[in-house]
Computed example of a mutant assay.
Amino acid sequence: MKAVLCKAYGPASSLVLEETTDPVAKKNDVIIDIHAAGVNFPDTLIIEGKYQVKPPFPFSPGGEAAGVVSAVGENVKHLKPGDRVMALTGFGSFAEKVAADAGRVLPMPDDMDYVTAAGFSMTYGTSMHALKQRANLQPGETLLVLGASGGVGLAAVEIGKAMGARVIAAASSDDKLEIARQAGADELINYADGELKEKVKALTKGQGADVIYDPVGGDLFDQSLRCINWNGRLLVVGFASGRIPEMPANLPLLKGAAVVGVFWGAFAARQPQDNLANFQQLFAWHTEGKLKPLVSQTYELNQYEDALAMLTSRKAVGKVVIKTR
């Protein structure tokens, strides 16, 4: 099979596309013939050794995939060859085949295509876990979503609306905010001028947001601590800005607020039944038309460098997907 391989830590330009051996299913694995693979910010980190997961060399990046099961391990009973599936692989999906733990593989909904499914798991899984288990978002609360035009941000906008929240979408340009508006955001904030705090206060009558969803970090995290409501929850999702912020501990104290970490991959592994229930709800919302995943760009497997560059340059709107078939 063909696979994009990382043989030493470095930028996307150091990756190679080569023929390599097909994966073999262990007892609890399924082999997936990949049709499409989602491209996510952790993929840009894992190849540089900056992610918490460090696979042995050589490895293929790519944390999620959609395709068809071609083989199953002896312990796998709920999946069979020929099943259309979506999988959270962690790595290995920038390839024509991947071996995935069967516990992290879900049958695809009948009304979902491979490209959509390849970009669904990580963004919607992360945002659902963040807003449900970590924030306990309630109907009528105000949700502020930073980076609202990116993959997880758009998912958070849609899920927040489905959960009954008032959603304020924040992004760095008016074009990006238009994407968030089309996804259902109630209010829009362009934070390119550095005045996020002031604009949030103006939209909330000085109270601040009840829940803040932050996949960006850096200066925006700093401002978020200063525009959160009493008893608010600030969700630490990621650091797309490149700077991991530090927090003056007096700020959450003064607001009775909580700063809450979101690590969906660990949640899915530790609480698989809760994760399954989350996806059952997500699939139902998708069928009802409440979730409309946006895949803005697709690439072929040999265009992996361009696909990853969309994430590192922060130009991606919605999801970026690599098609392998």
Rank of each mutant, 00 (worst) to 15 (best):
V4R: 11
L5Y: 11
C6A: 08
K7H: 12
S13I: 05
S13F: 00
E18M: 01
E18Q: 08
T21M: 04
T21I: 05
D22N: 08
D29T: 07
I31E: 00
A36Y: 13
A36W: 13
A36N: 10
A37T: 15
F41H: 07
P42F: 05
D43N: 15
T44Q: 10
K54D: 05
F59I: 07
S60C: 13
G62S: 14
G63W: 02
G63V: 08
V68D: 07
A71N: 12
V72D: 06
E74L: 03
N75A: 15
N75S: 15
V76W: 08
K77I: 14
L79Q: 11
D83E: 02
D83I: 01
R84S: 08
L88F: 15
S93P: 15
F94E: 03
E96R: 13
E96V: 09
V98W: 03
D101F: 13
G103D: 06
V105T: 15
L106H: 14
L106P: 13
P107C: 05
Y114M: 10
V115L: 13
V115N: 14
A117S: 15
A117W: 14
G119A: 11
G119R: 10
G119W: 14
T123L: 07
S127F: 05
M128I: 10
H129V: 05
R134P: 05
A135R: 09
Q138W: 09
P139I: 07
T142A: 04
T142N: 03
T142Q: 03
L144E: 08
V145L: 09
S149H: 02
S149K: 04
G150E: 10
V152R: 03
A155T: 06
I159Q: 06
G164E: 09
A165C: 12
R166E: 11
A171Q: 09
S172I: 12
D175T: 11
E178S: 07
A180V: 09
A183D: 10
E187H: 15
L188T: 13
L188Q: 10
G194C: 11
L196E: 05
L196D: 09
K197T: 12
V200G: 07
V200W: 07
K201P: 00
A202Q: 13
A202C: 09
G206C: 13
I212L: 05
G217Y: 04
D219Y: 12
L220K: 06
D222P: 01
Q223C: 01
Q223P: 00
L225F: 10
R226P: 01
R226V: 00
C227V: 10
N229K: 15
R233T: 11
L234C: 04
L235V: 08
V237P: 03
A240N: 07
A240L: 04
P245I: 06
P245G: 02
N250P: 00
L254Y: 06
G256A: 06
G256H: 11
V260G: 01
V262C: 07
W264F: 15
A268P: 00
A269L: 04
R270A: 11
Q271S: 08
P272S: 03
Q273C: 02
Q281W: 00
Q281E: 02
Q281N: 01
Q281T: 11
L282N: 05
H286D: 01
H286G: 01
G289H: 01
K292L: 04
L294I: 08
E300Q: 15
N302W: 02
Q303L: 10
Y304E: 02
A307S: 14
A307W: 14
A309E: 14
M310S: 11
M310D: 11
L311R: 02
L311F: 04
L311E: 03
T312V: 12
R314Q: 10
G318M: 13
V321N: 06
K323D: 07
